[in-house]
């Protein structure tokens, strides 16, 4: 019973995303289909996955997913932090350039017409 319900649930998610996600992320949707397909094989071919788990020295088939997912999530987290740091650096440079360009000499109340620093 569970395999059928689980497969229906996955199909439902894929259909909803296919209908409502913009076409620009269709490749991401295909990637999701691939991922869900692997998940589906786990409930359809449990014996094969159990054999694979034993071959790899892992107790339960689901642990293959847990370990893999943990590694991928950790990698994504680090990459995301690196991207965030880069964006923050670029924002800082932008804000700095604007503030230097629009610096005000208060004693004469005139805005300096200056070029960006090299």
């Amino acid at each position: 019973m569970f395999p059928i319900l689980f497969l229906c649930f996955l199909l439902f998610l894929l259909l909803v995303d296919f209908v409502f996600l913009p076409r620009s992320v269709r490749r991401a949707w295909l990637m999701m289909v691939l991922t869900f397909s692997v998940a589906a094989t786990m409930v359809l071919f449990t014996d094969a996955w159990r054999s694979l788990a034993h071959f790899l020295g892992i107790g339960r088939p689901v642990d293959i997913l847990v370990y893999t997912a943990t590694a991928i999530l950790a990698r994504e987290m680090f990459l995301s932090r690196a991207r965030q740091a880069k964006t923050e650096e670029q924002l800082t440079e932008l804000v700095r350039a604007i503030s230097i360009d629009s610096a005000t000499h208060l004693s004469t109340s005139k805005t300096q017409n200056q070029t960006n620093p090299p």
Partner: peptide
Amino acid sequence: FYLLRHRVNLGQGAALQTGISYARLH
């Protein structure tokens, strides 16, 4: 007196660097 304004809050270190860069270059 010279006034420079960050459009968004970046932090004291960023503000210092902006001021130092301005004084150094201009």
